[in-house]
């Protein structure tokens, strides 16, 4: 699988989403980024295999040691979980 690029008009920040394909809050976060027109990339870690899955889950754990998803990186800021207010604030 790997990263999926989603084009958007808003290119103010570097936005990367670490997600699981089966997670409802991850889906809501993806929808929010699209609604807000945010240029970003996301990856569904559960759909990756072997080394790639290991590498990406390690990266997500570095950003969020509690290991929960979604993990959203907006420049140097990390937002864990679907929290629309915090996400919009970080994207402002």
């Amino acid at each position: 699988m790997g990263f999926v690029r989603v084009d958007g008009k808003d290119k103010k920040h570097k936005v990367v989403l670490y997600a699981l394909s089966t997670c409802g809050w991850c889906r809501r976060t993806k929808e929010l980024l699209v609604e807000e027109g945010v240029d970003h990339e996301y990856v569904d870690i559960d759909l990756c295999n072997g080394d790639e899955k290991e590498k990406l889950s390690t990266k997500a754990r570095e950003l969020n040691p509690r290991g929960n998803y979604p993990v959203l990186q907006v420049d140097d800021r990390v937002i864990v979980g679907y929290d629309p207010d915090k996400i919009r604030e970080a994207l402002a």
Binding site: L20, S21, T22, C23, G24, C26, G67, N68, Y69
Partner: peptide
């Protein structure tokens, strides 16, 4: 229904109803 779809997917992938929102 999407979460239940995730449970069905995880049953096929892992053989049990792994939480759809946690990495197995």
């Amino acid at each position: 229904l999407r979460l239940v779809e995730g449970l069905v997917a995880n049953q096929k992938r892992y053989g049990y109803w792994q939480c759809p929102c946690r990495l197995a």
